[in-house]
Design a protein around this nucleic acid. Structure first.
Lengths: 339, 339
DNA sequence: TTGAAAGCGCTAACAC
DNA sequence: GTGTTAGCGCTTTCAA
């Protein structure tokens, strides 16, 4: 049987309140402090979180709802967040909703039943409907990588500047003289997809270019998807001189498709990829790529939520943090003309 | 303020016990059942898990301790488990210990403080020291993909038949006439690495072959690692005719290295990879590979734990479940001789 | 600074 | 089948 503060009270002769106070960082007489510490050690006392939670109504637990665990961007963010949160004694409950809005809604309900103190969500459902119950219950929410207009001002969010990222990458290709540029995007309708598409089109417009719809491929942010769409791009009547792939998995897939087609990068085709500089930077040719600050994103999300959680009953000041991306130049883009 | 069963008692005129009983699946008079159901709906009653846990000493939560989130084998298993467990109302707390035994031990302590009902662990520490406290506390444990001899009989485990898997793959290469076979393994000292190495050597011995140490490369189960070790293998004085890569990420890395070296599979070199049939099966050439039953592993783990959890106070019957792998033949192995 | 006492919301004897 | 009651182990007034 595990020991309780009652046992400590008995052992030290002190009252429950004193012990509880000390355990929660309050001031007690040095002598009593020693007494309690000794008893805690001797009895191997560990506070019962159930009782504590029942009283405080706080679980020291946060829920994370994501579309898919098997994605390096998502897992790297979770790893960072989890690290920070666990250090502060917050447990992280992960719910993979498999890009299914119904499952996503269920996950939110589930986490509310588990009485999480806060919610982190990379939304699949773009209506934000699934978060309403949590919002009504006053549970602080931080969105990751995606913004939900319908929830504006009621949740915090951390995103990167997707439009600028795509503009920079596309502009780099255009300035190198490329005009036949393929674009491989994620799921249509998703925030990042829209923004990256927007950035791509912006840059093209700057150069008075209007890429055909067949050059802009929607996919699903998976390796298989990137592979398939790259194949599709290669089978286009008018050959591309360059391609911009907008996440890590799809970049990998696209590279595999290029290798299979025996196309040399950048001689036969130029490529700009996404994320995992350490990896793509180690390969030859070094891939030119858009690098998202994944660690910073995870940190921001964790700290934003922590801020909201410690905010007490004061009404939360929700913010949207936009982080910059970096265009890391490698050797995968051929200069078709002098810049 | 959330409603409680007291509110339901007031509203229905029933006693607390009746309501609690009904809520936990007990029998009540049909009329009262209706009464309670109506009240639950009207009051939007949700049982307070804190109070329930305090009383039952059960958290309906399980902890998962893994070496790394960014690994497809691990995340696919977690996804499957999480799905099954959540359906039964178990929350899954994930702790990524980054292949660090110290962090792993901390994770176990953390999860015990959170009072998880059970523990799932893909151990980094091969002594099993980190699990002792949980074992002493009587927390059911299921090991994934690795066995800890020191904990024999005190924990359950789900593994695949790694020796046989490596034997089959290696034998396939040998029977095709290959004699210069490279092997890319995971971290030295890890269970799966040892077993797969053993299987490889077994098969070689059957053919009276003793591969040089330089052909057996230890790595770390990452894409980067597979890439680097493939490069190393390619720089060996005596060229290989085949290579066997023992996980998904390293297979991907090895393929990239081969592509960079402009080596054609299987003409220049034969390859047997690991996992993700859907992916490697879509690529050309179709990779011949060892396929682990990832979903079945996740299912077994979840069900094994569930079994232990519902076992009540009866002393648990721990078992080791060994699942078979499959050798899926593609076009990536060249026949050097008629079989 | 300390201690007594109330109570968080639920479950589970136990008596009816 | 139902209701009364006594906790589970903690925090937190409040008075000393």
């Amino acid at each position: 049987m595990a020991s309780t503060i009652k046992d400590i009270a008995k052992m030290t002769g002190l009252g429950l309140a004193t012990i509880s106070k000390y355990l929660n960082g309050g001031n007690v007489r040095p002598n009593n402090k020693r007494l309690i510490e000794d008893a805690v050690r001797d009895l191997r006392f560990v506070p019962n979180e159930f009782a504590r939670s029942l009283k405080t109504r706080l679980s020291r637990t946060v829920g994370v709802v994501i579309p898919e665990l098997g994605n390096q961007f998502i897992t790297s963010i979770i790893t960072t967040m989890e690290d920070i949160l666990r250090k502060l004694d917050y447990a992280v409950i992960v719910c993979d909703c498999r890009t299914d809005p119904r499952r996503e809604k269920e996950a939110v309900t589930f986490l509310m039943h588990k009485r999480v103190d806060g919610l982190i969500n990379m939304p699949t459902d773009s209506t934000g409907e699934h978060l309403k119950p949590a919002l009504d219950a006053g549970i602080p929410i931080v969105l990751v990588d995606r913004i939900l207009k319908s929830l504006s001002g009621r949740v915090s969010a951390v995103v990167v500047d997707n439009v600028e990222a795509a503009e920079k990458a596309t502009r780099f290709l255009l300035e190198s003289g490329h005009e036949e540029i393929g674009l491989i995007l994620g799921n249509e309708g998703i925030y990042t997809t829209q923004k990256r598409r927007e950035g791509f089109l912006n840059a093209c417009a700057e150069f008075s270019l209007k890429p055909g719809e067949e050059m802009i491929r929607f996919s699903d942010y998976t390796l298989e998807g990137g592979y398939a769409q790259m194949k599709a791009l290669l089978s286009l009547p008018k050959p591309l001189t360059a391609v911009f792939v907008t996440n890590y998995e799809m970049t990998l897939g696209a590279m595999i498709a290029l290798n299979e087609a025996a196309l040399k990068v950048p001689d036969d085709i130029s490529v700009i990829g996404f994320d995992k500089l350490d990896l793509f930077g180690a390969m030859y040719p070094h891939l030119t790529l858009v690098k998202q600050p994944q660690n910073a994103i995870g940190e921001c999300v964790a700290k934003l939520l922590l801020g909201l959680l410690s905010n007490g009953s004061a009404l939360p000041l929700h913010q949207i943090i936009t982080l910059p991306t970096q265009l890391c130049e490698g050797d995968s883009v051929r200069k078709l003309k002098r810049i």
